[in-house]
Structure formats: structure tokens, C-alpha cells
Design a protein around this nucleic acid. Sequence first.
DNA 1: CGACGCTTTGACACAACTCAACAACCGTGG
DNA 2: CCACGGTTGTTGAGTTGTGTCAAAGCGTCG
Lengths: 241, 241
Amino acid sequence: MPYSSNPLVRKLFAFAPLTVEEQAGLASVQSSPILVPRGKEVFREGQNGHRVFIIQAGWASSYKELPNGSRQIINIPIPGDCVGLRSVLLRTSDHGFSVLTDASLTTIDAPRMQQLFDEFPAIRAAFLWSAARDEAMAVEHLVGVGRRSALERTAHFFMELAERLMMVGLGTETQFKCPLNQYVLADALGLTPIHVNRVLRVLRERNLLTLRAGSVLIQDLPGLIKLASYRSVDNRTDRGN
Amino acid sequence: MPYSSNPLVRKLFAFAPLTVEEQAGLASVQSSPILVPRGKEVFREGQNGHRVFIIQAGWASSYKELPNGSRQIINIPIPGDCVGLRSVLLRTSDHGFSVLTDASLTTIDAPRMQQLFDEFPAIRAAFLWSAARDEAMAVEHLVGVGRRSALERTAHFFMELAERLMMVGLGTETQFKCPLNQYVLADALGLTPIHVNRVLRVLRERNLLTLRAGSVLIQDLPGLIKLASYRSVDNRTDRGN
DNA sequence: CGACGCTTTGACACAACTCAACAACCGTGG
DNA sequence: CCACGGTTGTTGAGTTGTGTCAAAGCGTCG
């Protein structure tokens, strides 16, 4: 088990054991926490990306907007997650980033990041692993939007979320806080808010899952797994079925 | 301009100038080309990913399959593209990979890759950049499937393809060979083959784009750009609009 | 209390899917 | 040379999942 209270350290530790020095280095390059009010756009698409943001507390979203006004949410970062790694590499951000609740963020700027990587190769490896996992999640997201029905996709979304939240100690197998409203869910799932509402109703009526008052209650995990043909985030890359 | 005939060297050179030594190193770690017959699955989801494949010639696809038999194509790699970088990091592949035409591939195994990175940091940086760009394309793909109509999405797909092919000298602004059949297009676009057919008809009837006999002819580039609100791959990360 | 943000519901429209043929193309073999 | 089968493309008719538009319900907070 990790010792640090820093969510990023905790998360990277889950990928690979880090020495005390590495943990300390990782913690020390981060800025002091910045408090961001709910709804605030931290950076927007096209903006220069010279640093990485790490969620300490709160929920966020990264997304792209189209000229016609619609929006696709790419990812819902939660505590411990990094945002903007790709932006640093590409120099500018290809997506917007805003927080959905009051949140606390730290940052690492590009030069410090580089120094850290040079000094601690294990940290570089851990970041690469984490980034690869994020990308795998984006790919799974693409599959969902391209080939799963609204119902399957929604079920899948909540199970993945549950799993991620559990890993950072923000929920159990069957229950977690979820401050996402139906507009946000719609933009994440590639649906309209109205249809999200209908889908949620079906999930509720089938006693699979209930979202009420900012909390998700998973009532029938096997049923959901079957419905969405869900595979655990960490087993997606396992052999066979 | 790059001097090497190796497509990977050419491509990475486009990201950052590489010294002669770096180019030589990059070429020398690659296996000799493997010829793969059209339709062959090179690796499948869940398989161990201990090496990266580089397309020398031919077309390919990486995809995920769902238990219900449907399939979502993640990417259509063309010469110069790498497949399986993420798989190396995550130890197993989260997607399948097969070639669509007779193709020639080289590989780099994980340990050699690591040596190369240690010896030539610039190559590591170039790979990271390339990987970031690929991920940005996947994200754009997600946006398309989530928030663009079938027509817009299809138009977008072909323009992006045109641009990528042009970069490796396999097409012009308005014309390129395209051996993708409507089933493949359907799996890439998240549509049914039948609907792809109808969409292609509309594009043809509006004198925007014609796919015939394995070749795409772009008849009205401004019209397509407007229809799909397309932005060039390399300008997606530019500031503003 | 009213205003606001969010959820819920209903009626209807439409984009995309399904099912079912048929047509064009192409390589193969008689 | 033509006949053939397999693959790919094309078209039509009907269905359905999801979107659109419009309105009402419901908490909460100032």
C-alpha cells in the first residue's frame, strides 16, 4: 500500500512500486494545490499546453467542442488523474478541460517534468504506463460510442467509473458519489440529455442501477456486466475471454 | 527532407530532425520486412505485446471486437505508422491488428526499443510525439462517432486519410488509392455497410467526393471541409479557430 | 416566495438499421 | 470463350432507436 496522501503518488504507485526518494520527488515537483470553483474552464482547446494538471480532489471533464455547438466529453478525470500530458508533448491542447465540482488541482510544468524523468526513470515509466492506460480507456470509449447501444454504453460507463473510483478509495463495488448531471452524461455518452434520462429510467426499472441525488447505487452487478459485456479496466488486456 | 527510404524514419523525421546516427539506429533496430497476405490477423486482442509493428507497405486496421460480433476499427495504419506501442507498455494488446491488403511489416522488440531510447533520447521524444498524435487522432475519431452525423463523419474520415497519405507520398490533395471496402468503412465509422453505401452516394451526388474502383477522388475540398468542419491534423492543436 | 438548475414525461420526426433482393465485378476453370 | 461462384456494391421497403420540441415537476437557495 502507498504511504503518500498525494493522489498522483498513490496512483502511480499502483502501477509500479516507487522508492521513497521517487515518491518524494514526485510530490515535490507538484505546485501547491489550486482551488478551482465548480464549472470553471481550466484551459481550452488550442491553448498552449506547458504543464500537466493533477486532480487532488473533485471531478472534472476533458472534452472537444464542435462548431455546431455540440460537445463530446473525452474523459472524466477523478482524483489522482492527470490531464494534459498529451498537450505538453504536442505543445498545444487538443481538448478543453473544466471542472465539474469545486476542485483542487496541482500542476507540474514541462521542464520540471523533464528533470523528474531524467532523475527517476521509474517515474517516467510509471507515467507512460498511466498514459497508456488512459489511452486504452479512450479507445474503449470509442468502441462504446461506435458499437454499443445507448443502454449498454451507459451501463458500461458507470461500471468503469465505479471501478476507477474504488481504486482511489472513493466508492465501493456497489455505491459511489456521482455529481454528474444528465447533460454531462449525455456529452460523455454521445446522447441527448433526454435520452440519457430514458436510459437511466430503464436501468432503474430493471433494478440494475439507480442514480439519485448525486449517488449511484449498483443493484445488480452481474446483470450490468452481462448487459454491457463489461471487462474490468485491468483485465481488458488479458488473454482470451 | 528525410533521406531514408524507411517509412518510419521518414515519419519521425517529420516530427523532429534526426541526426544521421539516429536515423541509422532507428533503421537498424527494425527486423527485416515480413510479408503478410491480405486479411491476415497479425495479433489479436489479449495477446502478449512484446514488440511494435511498423507498416512498410500496404494498409492495415486495428480494432476491437464485441461479444455480439460487431467490430469497431480504431485506426487504419498506413505506411510509416506504428502499431502496438501501447501494447508493449501494457504488456498485452487491448486491440486486434490485421492487414487489409498484402503488406510488408517490420518489428522492433521491446528490449531493443528500450536500448534505442536510452542511446538516443531524441528518438524517444519523436516516438512520444508520434504516439501523442495518434492518440489525438483517436480522440478526434471518438468525437466524430459521438457527435457527427454519418455524412460529416465519413467526409471527415476521408479528408484525414487524404492528409495522412499525402504526408507519406501516397496521394495528392485530391486523389488517392483506397482499398477499403464498405464493410471496413462501416466498422471504422460506426455505421452499417448499407448506410455507408448511401452516404457515399450522397457525397457523390453532391459532387463532393467519389470512391470508385479503389480510388478516392476529392471533387470539392472546400465543400467537404465545410461539411465536416475539418481541421488539418497538424493544426488541430492551434490556437483559436 | 420566486428563480433557477435539473429531471421527467409526452408526442412526434428522422437518421440509421434490418431484411431482402439484385447487380456488377473479377478471377477461375472448363 | 463463356459459365460460374464469390465478393462487393446498390437499391427498396419497412422498422426502430435516438433526437427534437415543448412543457411540466421538483428541490434548493437566496
